[in-house]
């Protein structure tokens, strides 16, 4: 059931996003709304079939609106801020050419794959760090463009992102 609901909601959102501005019920026209429901239902059933065949069970977290709200707060708040800082930092390094790169290990302690993904992508887009590899225990190997210490604590590399990733997706 979870698969069908998730697939239905997401394909519906996708279709509505692509057909915005087509009419005047809200901003959609009646045929588009009808097609949205029809296509999403068919897609959900097909997805259910394919996912069962491949043995994939998506997590229920994707349907939790609280997590999406948290993700939105995170994306426009701390994430955007540190992204701006990251870009000014890279600008400084491009202009001056001052680099001291190294690959360090970050022990995150996160269990779920979703949380690790959120954290890894955040790390890649924030100051001076780029995720290269990860192992089974959830440790990330991070390319750091200006190494401050060789055995860093997680806070030194990615601030409080570990906490945020845990709150959003753990």
């Amino acid at each position: 059931m979870a698969v069908i609901a998730t697939a239905f909601v997401f394909s519906m959102l996708f279709y509505l996003l692509l057909t915005a501005g087509s009419g005047n019920i809200g901003i959609w026209s009646l045929p588009e709304l009808a097609f949205a429901v029809g296509f999403s239902a068919v897609l959900a059933l097909v997805a259910k079939k394919i996912f069962t065949k491949l043995g994939i069970t998506p997590t229920r977290k994707l349907l939790n609106p609280k997590r999406w709200a948290l993700l939105l707060v995170y994306a426009v708040g701390p994430f955007l801020f540190s992204m701006a800082k990251a870009n000014l930092d890279v600008a400084y390094r491009v202009v001056t050419g001052k680099i001291r790169p190294g690959i360090v290990k970050v022990e995150t302690g996160l269990k779920s794959h979703l949380a690790t993904t959120v954290l890894a992508n955040s790390i890649t887009l924030t100051p001076g760090t780029l995720t290269i590899d990860l192992d089974e225990k959830g440790n990330l190997y991070v390319h750091w463009i200006y190494v401050k210490s060789k055995k860093p604590r997680p806070e030194e590399v990615c601030g409080n992102f570990v906490k945020w990733a845990g709150r959003i997706a753990e």
Partner: peptide
């Protein structure tokens, strides 16, 4: 991330490294 991992595993060494935990 995919490019970085593939580059590392295909043996392209990062230059000027001060530490390499990987």
């Amino acid at each position: 991330h995919a490019i970085a991992r593939a580059a590392y595993r295909s043996g392209i060494k990062p230059k000027l490294l001060v530490v390499d935990e990987l």
